[in-house]
Design a protein around this nucleic acid. Structure first.
Lengths: 198, 198, 198, 198
DNA sequence: CATGAATGAGGGTTCATTCAT
DNA sequence: TATGAATGAACCCTCATTCAT
């Protein structure tokens, strides 16, 4: 009552919306979307379930908002990619940047990878698929051999796998990141040259 | 009463357990584990929920039984792999056979890929992880460079991706299968030679 | 096939009905009637639930049959008591014999004491109440003071308590039995003399 | 909107928790714990089952809360008893007060008496047993004869029986209460003097 | 901004019971 | 004698959501 907070309820400066997103993403990534209840989120925040509804109209809107906030870099990457010439350098740069974008929103992508069935039914599903298709079309040469097309997709998947599956591979994280990137770039490079050499 | 059934209740010869598994897997793969209710499964089979409980003790046991039934070929593959010398040929053969095994239980693996968050919490989770680790240890040379290790994992992932993600890639399914296999084999081959050449 | 049993299924000479009763009583006394399911009984006997229904029409009939089989001595005791003169000796003898009867069917009475709410709703309820009333009327003098009437009921209750509550009192069981009996007899004796002395 | 409620939904001022407890205790005492479903309780209150779960986390918590709320006088009685000298007067006073405490929470104790099997499995079970043991230790002389120990327990049991079994004894309730108390006090008195006189 | 109280729909699970074989 | 398969009703419980305050 007057003056500074007493700490009982940690800083409530109106950042509640943000805090909800943080906790939600953490729990969604850890337990899955359906197994995470609003009650659980609310409890962690020491807030009522009803409070969540002040900030988000539905449970789905929480995940959608996360998706929209966190995946903009990828949107921009695609935008950028579309305007570039389809050279090898461009492709390699795309892979590099995509790797960074994934790392920048790791929990979200972990969530999306581990909850594909859920994501597909959510509103995000289609949007996300569109983006992936967009990316693909940039690095895939339409008249490349099937094998090379697969290589490109495999490159993207390697990046994804790099984030989550390879956590239990031993080695320095930074080294692993580099190794993953190298393999991915290798794949698009092979794919790019495939057309010309074979 | 003599002769064939009248069709109202299709053949109830004792294949109910099997039919439950079939329908369950279909729905689990399509909608996810948590979003598929036992009521839904029962309705599709024109049977009561309680009937499911005659054949399976819990919902989890249904998916576990599917896992155990359909995953044995992979178990055997690992067994076989362990007894082979770690030659390039062995590795390539592992990849080939793993591809086949995946194809042989496609719906289950699609389910597991798209419901990782769920699977992790289920009893299957650990078993599955162990198997993947087992496979990895066979095709990965322990003293290979990190990059080559990533290549091997990427090969396995490419096979997985091949099953599900690449469905919307245009082209003859059989051709796609071959292309996927080629890329995967390529990756382990590069990884294998990496140590010797680099 | 032919000759003696092999022991896998212990003696099944047609005593199944009896075995059901035994196991049922044990479980009913231990866990209560409602918390004991037919599945549980069947499993303990290594038999199907359906088999129970060959021997008993309903779950209730199992407990009813136990009641009828095991409480006959008390029925007879009442019969006997009714024909005796209402002397002190008779009353004392009733108490003594009732104590024995309780001991002879301890698990059943433990069950009835600990599941009164259930028993009341079962068909047994009334029968049992009738018997208790019968007993009471024998040892209670209709024109005794209220206090002496209470003494008589208290005597009966002391016997009941003696069976179950006093199990955790230390001391030799046989000694405890005697002590309980002594107190009960004391109570009816006081009650009997009350009328004459007060 | 201003003034009194319209009666459709009787006063919902926040006394719902209390109303749940009241109805629950009534039904539990009448039909037993397991045979009373939450649906039944909810219906009587003209409320949804889910509403019960807003106020109590589980069904068990309802009975536990009743136990904790209603049983405090006995807790205090024991506390008080422990601090008194072990004189005859103290023992008699304990019996008197215990009788009052029982009367003050008659429905709860009726429930506990008639659902012992259930209570034993509930969290309350042990707590209750501890209290009874506490009471016992106050009125029982450790070096009294077994017979006198039984007398003390019998006294307590007489009080219990007085509440429930003797309802169908004819006579004025108040007179019956007095008679029961007299017998109980008599028993502890005999027990107390037993050591000195016998 | 947020809570307290409640709802309706549905979840998985268990039960006593039935009946053809 | 007993089993295998199934049912219908009920169970406790949890969820996302609503709304007056």
């Amino acid at each position: 009552m007057g003056g500074t907070m007493d700490g009982t309820k940690q800083q409530r400066r109106g950042n509640t919306r943000q805090r909800i997103q943080d906790v939600a993403l953490e729990l969604f990534a850890e337990q899955g979307y359906e197994k995470t209840s609003l009650r659980e989120i609310a409890e962690r925040l020491d807030v009522t379930k009803a409070a969540l509804y002040y900030h988000f109209k539905t449970k789905e809107e929480i995940i959608v908002s996360l998706f929209e906030d966190l995946t903009q870099p990828i949107e921009e990457l695609i935008e950028w990619g579309r305007r570039q010439p389809h050279t090898l350098e461009t492709k390699q740069e795309i892979v590099r940047r995509y790797g960074q974008a994934l790392a920048g929103a790791a929990p979200l992508f972990r969530f999306m990878q581990e909850n594909q069935a859920t994501v597909r039914e959510l509103r995000i599903g289609d949007t996300f698929k569109d983006r992936m298709t967009g990316l693909r079309d940039i690095i895939i040469d339409p008249d490349a051999s099937l094998t090379d097309q697969v290589r490109c997709i495999s490159a993207l998947f390697t990046l994804h796998a790099g984030m989550f599956v390879m956590r239990d591979l031993e080695g320095d994280p930074e080294d692993k990141r580099k190794a993953v990137l190298e393999v991915a770039i290798d794949l698009v490079t092979q794919a790019h040259q495939g057309g010309r050499t074979a």
